[in-house]
Design a protein around this nucleic acid. Structure first.
Lengths: 192, 192
DNA sequence: TATATTCGAGACAAGCTGTATCGTAATGAT
DNA sequence: ATCATTACGATACAGCTTGTCTCGAATATA
């Protein structure tokens, strides 16, 4: 009866996969998203061009795979002394992610591409790092008794009000929020 | 002494200029930003390719010129009965702009491009339609006596907290805010 | 008339795209 | 051991866009 637990033929090369992910990571920082090409990625990874196209259909897809894990890790905040400090810590992590981190640079590039490519938009909604991290933060402070008067129903709205201001500052003004601004946002967020 | 009030040589063709702006507007809706090319724009406008490059250096620049005036107009809100209704009206206009309007589609494409092209980022900050409109809204409600306890100093922060949530919903979740959500945002914004 | 600048049109080299094909390598089935 | 199947790196290929350059013609000023 033996069904193939492994598919037929030569197995996918893990070396090639990692080389491609690595190349994309490096090139994003070194040359920027716009200058990155599928051809350049293959050459930098020392990999056949067809091998890239076989497993990914766009540079956005590669970049997402290369940065999603880092993004989630950088946005995970360990609980502190109280709800307000937790929210402040999350907003600080969010600011650092969006303005300083390589994974954040990748996320911004992907979010940008999503604005004029529906396939990338879908892709990005499949792994909503920002939303997931924000929801985790909100669940944490709820477990502490904060936001008691706020119904669970409007969870998406809460996420938007928590993440939106910092996202706006990064995306449109290009300015990183100051610590006092972040703690102010956290205080007002919890005082609703 | 007669200094040239008009520069020497054949003057720029206004017909060609308008034809290019028109072509970009049409193509954005018909084919999307990604499919738009400088070559395609010139052909659609029935204009020489060099003529396009002579006056604009990228499709982003053309698109900004083609949509900035519409954007500013769509984000201008006439004062209503009180501060809260004014803010709600602004947020509603912002939502409609970002999710339904052609000019908003252009703005999202430009903001997206700005995330991986520094020249577009600079360009966009030169004419900050979202920020200007938000500041106008805030100045309006301040003239009504609202936000009295909030110092003028943190104006940028106010703009971010006003615009951020709706921008987040549009850009990352792709969802248009409900009217109750918008009025809730307006109420909380004024209650700080 | 002479000069200067723009116009539409198109040539041109360079680069990327996505697919196809080559011979080779690695794995499972018989 | 041999075969079938799939992935591998490498490369060729047509099609497209890019940005620059050139051409003759048009339209303005001096």
């Amino acid at each position: 009866m033996e069904q193939h637990q492994r598919p037929l033929g030569r197995p996918r090369s893990e070396d090639a996969r990692l080389a491609v992910l690595r190349a994309v990571d490096d090139m994003l920082v070194a040359e920027g998203y716009a200058a990155m090409t599928m051809k350049g990625i293959a050459e930098r990874a020392k990999v056949g061009r067809q091998t890239v196209y076989r497993w990914w259909s766009s540079k956005a897809e590669i970049l997402l795979e290369a940065s999603a894990a880092d993004a989630a890790r950088e946005l995970t905040v360990t609980p502190g002394v109280d709800a307000e400090s937790d929210v402040t810590a999350f907003l600080t992590a969010l600011r650092d992610f969006l303005t300083r981190s390589d994974a954040g640079l990748a996320y911004r590039a992907l979010l940008g591409e999503a604005q004029h490519d529906d396939r990338v938009a879908e892709l990005l909604r499949g792994t909503d790092v920002l939303g997931d991290a924000a929801r985790a933060c909100i669940a944490g402070v709820r477990a502490r008794g904060a936001l008691a008067g706020v119904p669970e129903a409007g969870a998406d709205l809460l996420v938007a009000e928590l993440v939106g201001p910092v996202l706006f500052q990064t995306l449109v003004t290009g300015r990183a929020a100051e610590p006092e601004e972040l703690s102010g946002m956290a205080r007002r967020f919890l005082a609703r």
